[in-house]
Computed example of a mutant assay.
Amino acid sequence: MKKISKGILTLALTTTMLAGCASKPSEPSTPGGNSTPAADGVIKIAVAGPMTGDNAEYGKGFANAAKLMVDEWNANGGVLGKKIELVTFDDKNSGEEAASIAQKIVSDKDIIGVIGHFASGVCMAAAPTYQENKVIEISPSASHPDYSGIGDYIFRNNTVINVEAAAGLDIAINDLGKKNIGIISIKTDWGTSTAAIVKDLVADKAGTGAKVVAHEEVMEGSDDYSPAITKLNAAGADVVICVGMYNLVAPVAKQYKQVNPNIEIVGFSNSYSQQLLTLGGSAVEGVRFPVIFFSESTDPKVKTYVDNYKNAYGSVPSALTSQAYDSVGMLLEAVKAAGTTDHAKVRDALAAIKYPGVTGNTVFNEKRDVQKEFVKVMIKDGKFEAVK
């Protein structure tokens, strides 16, 4: 299995999901109000993400993975002799909604930490409230470079976007041997900033002959990308970097290959989903991307996790879903190591953790960001396959 080594740090503001609604909050929050231990008998973990709307698959995946991990711990007695409960919130992938939810979360003294939110911008809208009230936030998906800098209670279990963008370009330039790079990106904060990062990285590789021949921004969720595709094709793109999720990559692949059957397409790990295969069909054959988690891994730990997830939910877990699973595990291990639910002590234990999860060995750096290795994956014969 061919791996890409760790690299540059990045950014990215996209998505998670869950299902459910919050329990009624207790008293109003006060700065630092959650620094005391949780009540006897129960420890709560909040999961916050888009449970409804276009990005609901991500939020629900977060919630499913969190429940799977919590069930495993509860089956073994919970943590510190207490039962673990999940409380889920639908932020609709909205910064305004997330800011409101954050106030509800910090008012519940039994909540030790938050897994979420999904998009970087949404995470950054809620994070100041968590930081002020000393509630740990671990986002399985935020990639914006500035996210974890909001404060020392803010953690990222996802690679910064610059690192992933560099990994994608390595596939395009070195694996596929392409030089004329087209970019199609969704018109969101994350899409715009990530496309800019890709351009800067290509400019740094000018000595290789690689260049961006065209860049087209499109509305997320559009059905017709033909105007953008026509411009990319006319500019002579021989590989297209899709800065978006599966709901961009699948239709772009379908429509582009009607114009140019030989076009190569490289995506980001947030497009690594069964939905990409379902929506794209034969058109996504050959699409490649770097991922941290590969569900077809032969690692026994990964195989057991994937089997358990499939048995519970009837689908294969995505990379971001799996990072949510590990995020819950890390938070609970930190509580166990601290020997208390005191937020400051749990935070310190989490910052120092070395966690052998299904998404690799996780260690946080001084910025509370993780650095992991990528696996290069492509779609072949209707399945995801690691590039040897």
Rank of each mutant, 00 (worst) to 15 (best):
Q131G: 06
L279M: 13
A337K: 13
T192P: 05
S35W: 00
N64R: 15
A46M: 09
K199P: 11
L80S: 01
M69S: 15
V122F: 04
D381M: 08
L176N: 14
I105F: 09
V358L: 00
W73C: 05
I241N: 11
T188D: 01
I197L: 10
D223F: 11
K104M: 09
K354G: 10
L201R: 05
T359P: 13
V135Q: 04
I183Y: 14
A196I: 08
E264N: 15
Y305W: 03
T362R: 08
G81M: 07
I229Y: 14
N365H: 08
Y313F: 10
N158E: 07
V316C: 02
A75E: 09
S185R: 08
Q258R: 05
L279I: 07
D90A: 01
K231S: 11
K380N: 10
G113E: 04
A127F: 10
G339Q: 02
G382T: 11
T194D: 09
A142V: 11
A126V: 06
L80Q: 08
I184K: 10
L9N: 09
K336M: 04
L277G: 01
A75Q: 10
D369G: 03
H343N: 15
F268V: 03
N133L: 00
H117N: 14
V302Y: 04
G177W: 11
Y313L: 00
N233D: 12
V198C: 12
P140K: 07
G339K: 03
Q323G: 08
P25K: 00
L331E: 03
I241F: 08
G221E: 08
A235Y: 09
T194H: 15
G182V: 00
L201K: 13
A319Y: 10
A63V: 06
L18A: 01
L279D: 15
K44N: 07
C123G: 15
H117M: 07
D299V: 03
T304C: 00
L68A: 08
M51D: 05
L201M: 07
S35Y: 01
D307A: 08
P251M: 00
D110E: 08
A344P: 01
I45R: 09
G182M: 01
G382C: 11
